[in-house]
Design a protein around this nucleic acid. Structure first.
Lengths: 211, 211
DNA sequence: CTCCGAGTTTGCGCTTCAACAACCTTTGGC
DNA sequence: GCCAAAGGTTGTTGAAGCGCAAACTCGGAG
């Protein structure tokens, strides 16, 4: 895309600040807009019939999300919540095809993102189907630190606040089990954690635990 | 697509018969072709590091598969095996973009398929994360009978041979547990099974079991 | 017709982990 | 500085379901 094209596109967007905890859109709602995360972290989640929350993925800044239209859907398949204060650009879904037609590489880029997300979901399915809780949590921490990590002295910090509860909802477990494991791993100096913040100190041993 | 266009397209395809058990392509292999299943049933699967097989989805006749290129990938993310004798049309992946450009609706149609598959994977993740084995197996049977069912007197038969082992690999369980549950459900006249064949007699009670 | 192997059934012990419960700690609002 | 609420720790218990083992049965190859 040229600079002129970028200007055009930005002129059509609405920017807004979503404070931590705000829902950008809800599962099942009509997909009226697609979004770009400029800053912050978005959590994509669904509730099952019994009301258990399952967190499917986290969106890092710079990614499009809520692109239901690209997949032939008219409603959002999941909800998106701001995990921290976020800056979000939004466009009406009606402009999707225009964008795709007009800007070369827009569609290709988008489908690469979708491909990557599918691959990630595929991995999650494998993990859930074959690994034990301990391994799954180790995997989740590794993924988070790789994709959403920030280097600090001594290790990698996960770049947004994350509770035991959230980690359990990402791994199909309970906050109790997560708490126990994090405590054990902290004793072994594999991770370190403050409330809502986790640091991976020794990724190689975490990988071992994930097998 | 017009009839003339269909003829063009078919002229470029290679047709072949894949006997039951044959691998159409392997996980990780270079994505040289994309395929259309004319007849039969394809099973998409992956192996994890320990060699456990996980079955992600089943492809019904009439669907495209192995469409890695559409998702910006150069290798297949999973393997595809013929679950029964299959008739498969294949095109070299190099023709993908040509097809997408030339035939209106081709791309849109494809992305709808991808959207549906993502939705299904999403559901699988939810199930694996929150439901117990019994519920997951009930869900799997319902899905199979809906998407790959064939009406027979008294119920619905799953349209391709399926072992306890396969069902366990679809649900992240073991063939023993599946066997036990099927036996119990057969006593309650919810399902009926011959070796490699399963009939769903009472879908409503199965839905109850799946909650 | 017989044999062999793939598919299935069933029992038993043992591990994993969710459920329940109680208590502790940190943080932010007033 | 106090309080409430959110978040975290830790112990105990019970059950789900996996691993192992052994036996059974069907169906096809020869």
């Amino acid at each position: 895309m040229t600079t002129a094209q970028i200007k055009d596109v930005l002129a059509l967007a609405t920017a807004r600040l979503a404070p931590a905890g705000e829902y950008i859109f809800d599962e099942g709602a009509e997909a009226a807009s697609f979004h770009l995360l400029l800053d912050g972290h978005i959590q994509v989640e669904r509730l099952n019939a019994e009301g258990d929350r399952v967190i499917s993925l986290h969106i890092p800044p710079g990614q499009l999300f809520g692109i239901a239209k690209a997949l032939g859907r008219t409603t959002y398949p999941a909800s998106a919540v701001a995990a921290v204060d976020c800056v979000v650009l939004s466009w009406p879904m009606s402009q999707w095809s225009e964008f795709a037609d007009r800007y070369d590489g827009f569609a290709t880029e988008t489908y690469s993102v979708i491909g990557a997300r599918m691959a990630e979901m595929h991995n999650r399915i494998m993990e859930l189907a074959t690994q034990r809780v301990e391994q799954r949590i180790a995997c989740a921490l590794l993924r988070l630190s790789e994709k959403h990590g920030r280097q600090v002295e001594g290790g990698t910090e996960i770049a947004f606040p994350i509770t035991r509860k959230v980690l359990s909802e990402m791994t199909g477990s309970t906050l109790h089990t997560v708490s126990r494991l994090l405590s054990a791993w902290e004793r072994d100096e594999i991770v370190k954690s403050k409330r809502k913040h986790i640091f991976v100190l020794d990724p190689s041993r975490l990988e071992q635990l994930a097998q």
